[in-house]
Simulated scan of single mutants.
Amino acid sequence: MTDADRRNNRRTVAAYEGYARGYAAAVPATPSPQAAADLRRFAASLAPPARVLEIGSGPGWDADFLETLGAQVRRTDVTAAFVRFQIERGKQAYPLDLLSDEIEGTYDGILLLYVVQHFERDQLDEALRKLARALTAQGVALLSHMLGDGDEWEGDAGDYRVVRWPAAAMDERLRRAGFAVEWESFIDSERRPWRSVLARKLG
């Protein structure tokens, strides 16, 4: 990982630190029908009582929904402002930087939604390997990525790093990390195509 890769991610995290409460206010607390369907399928793939690690929990809306389905969710985020926001809501939330921290313990499932677009290409393989190491045998990960090629900076100040992945390229990275994709779904959000995949740990 280059110094530039680290700087890009830190710049993005710093932008979220300043916008966390605005983000929480802008994102609906109830998942869309498609997102809810994905979360239900994810929960159904886990044997109860399932322990789920959510990376990039943000305001915690997805964790709230998963808990109504019976999952035990450990909420984490690299953005301290999001962790504070959830604690103020009466939730337990913890700091975790997937790019620099090791994941403690093992989980039946890992949720990683709207996160990997902020990782540079050279950062993704080790991040996926960390997910595999943190899953129990036959554990599953539900992750989303922005479809397409190339990378760019987004936001009013151009502070949010976005790296796009074609479906085949993401699936190959998952395969190298020890996963097999079981299903996929698609959401077109404000003309931005997103793909979610459920990937099961092999072996």
Rank of each mutant, 00 (worst) to 15 (best):
L174P: 05
F82S: 13
I87M: 13
A167G: 06
D101F: 01
R41F: 00
Q72Y: 10
P59C: 06
L202Q: 14
P31K: 04
E182P: 06
F186G: 09
R41V: 03
P33D: 09
M170G: 00
Q123F: 09
G155P: 02
A180N: 12
R40N: 09
D188S: 07
P31I: 01
L46T: 02
R7Y: 12
Y23G: 00
T68K: 12
L135D: 02
A157H: 15
L112G: 01
Q92A: 13
L112E: 00
A137C: 05
D125S: 14
L112T: 05
Y160W: 09
M170Q: 04
Y23F: 11
D38Y: 00
G139Q: 02
E172G: 01
W194V: 04
P59W: 03
D3G: 04
H118T: 08
A50F: 00
I103D: 08
E184N: 11
L111E: 06
P59T: 04
H145A: 01
I87C: 09
V13M: 14
A63Y: 13
D5N: 06
S185G: 13
R200E: 03
R129F: 08
D64I: 07
E126C: 13
E172Q: 07
V116W: 08
L143K: 07
L131R: 08
R133C: 12
R195C: 12
D5M: 05
T2R: 11
R164I: 02
S32D: 09
E182H: 10
P59V: 07
W183S: 14
F85A: 11
R200Y: 04
D125W: 02
A132D: 04
L46C: 09
G105N: 01
D64V: 09
L98G: 02
Y107I: 03
G58D: 05
I110D: 08
D62Q: 15
W194Y: 14
A29N: 10
L198Y: 00
T2S: 15
V78C: 12
A25W: 03
V83P: 03
L143M: 12
D125V: 07
S100I: 10
